[in-house]
Simulated scan of single mutants.
Amino acid sequence: MTAPLAGDLLAIYDTLYAAFGHQNWWPAETAFETMIGAILTQSVSWANASCAIGNLEAAGLLDPEMLAGADTGDIARLIIPSRFYNQKAERIGEFAGIYIEEFQADPAVMAAMETDALRERLLDIRGFGKETVDSILLYACNKPVFVVDAYTRRIFSRYGFLPEKASYDRMQRLFADTLPPDVDLFNDYHAQIVRLGKTACRKSPLCDRCPIRVIGGSLRCAATLRQAPGSGADRLPGGR
């Protein structure tokens, strides 16, 4: 762990926590619901994914055995709010079958598998990318795997921690190599990043709403500096 960098990242988290409170993420009744939610929220807002989950639950299909045996078309019709519903229906059906066959439909069996091996197995499933898999690992299996996304890239590139086009792996290493491997911290930190990205650090930033716009020390946001009269990005700290 790099102490100064860890201090900066933890200062950002602490400030977000003080502003927004604990995010209580992921909103699900069961680990399996979390897994299905991770598939449904691909390329769509959580509100849409949540609506699709509600439809599956109302139809009595939010169950691995039921989904594995269901017609793909029936699943697709229920998850229309999540967009790309035909593709996602196929992924859900395939995953439900794997969950039953390889993990006995038991999240504890899945969680007992070594983290890297489980990650590789899930990445082998058609349509499962790194963000989807890492969300399952962290939020359903309680593995200390930091989930990153477009909000992470936007926020932390503006602070100079990452290049604007940083890869998923580069973003993940920033946190995984710097912070202690704490499931609760990783869980809520990612949720705080999403909250900030939605409410303030948008593509067109609303800096007056941002609780971390000036934390102190050398931390400065490029978007905030650009909005300040007479300020420039050359005032950003270097070395990151």
Rank of each mutant, 00 (worst) to 15 (best):
Y168W: 11
R158E: 13
L137S: 10
V183F: 11
K165A: 12
A166Q: 10
R153D: 03
D169Y: 04
D149S: 14
A166N: 10
L138G: 09
V183R: 14
K165I: 00
D177W: 01
Y168V: 12
P180R: 14
K143H: 11
V147L: 03
V183C: 09
P144F: 06
Y159Q: 02
T178Q: 07
C141D: 04
I155L: 11
E164R: 14
R170C: 02
I155S: 06
E164A: 15
R173F: 00
Y159E: 02
D184M: 13
G160W: 09
L185W: 05
P163I: 00
P180F: 01
L138A: 06
F161H: 10
F146L: 12
D149C: 14
P163Y: 03
D177M: 01
K165Q: 11
L162C: 05
A166Y: 09
V183A: 12
P180M: 03
L137P: 12
S157T: 02
A166H: 09
V147H: 06
R173I: 00
G160H: 09
R154D: 07
V145K: 14
G160L: 07
D182C: 07
A166D: 06
L174T: 03
P144M: 07
L179A: 08
S167L: 11
R153N: 09
P144K: 12
R170A: 13
A166W: 10
D184P: 00
A176P: 01
A166P: 10
K165L: 02
S157W: 04
A150I: 10
P144N: 06
D149I: 13
R154K: 13
S157P: 04
Y139C: 00
D184H: 13
L137G: 08
K143P: 02
E164Q: 13
A150S: 15
D169S: 14
R154W: 08
F161K: 08
T178N: 10
P181Q: 12
V148R: 12
T178R: 12
F146E: 11
V147K: 08
T178A: 08
I155T: 03
S167Y: 03
K165D: 15
R158L: 11
R158I: 03
K143G: 01
P163R: 15
Y151D: 11
R153K: 15
N142Y: 12
D169I: 06
S167P: 05
P180S: 13
T152S: 14
C141L: 04
C141M: 13
V148I: 10
C141V: 02
Q172K: 15
S167N: 05
D182H: 07
T178P: 05
L185S: 09
S157C: 02
F161N: 06
P180W: 02
L174Q: 05
L138Q: 08
T178I: 07
K165M: 02
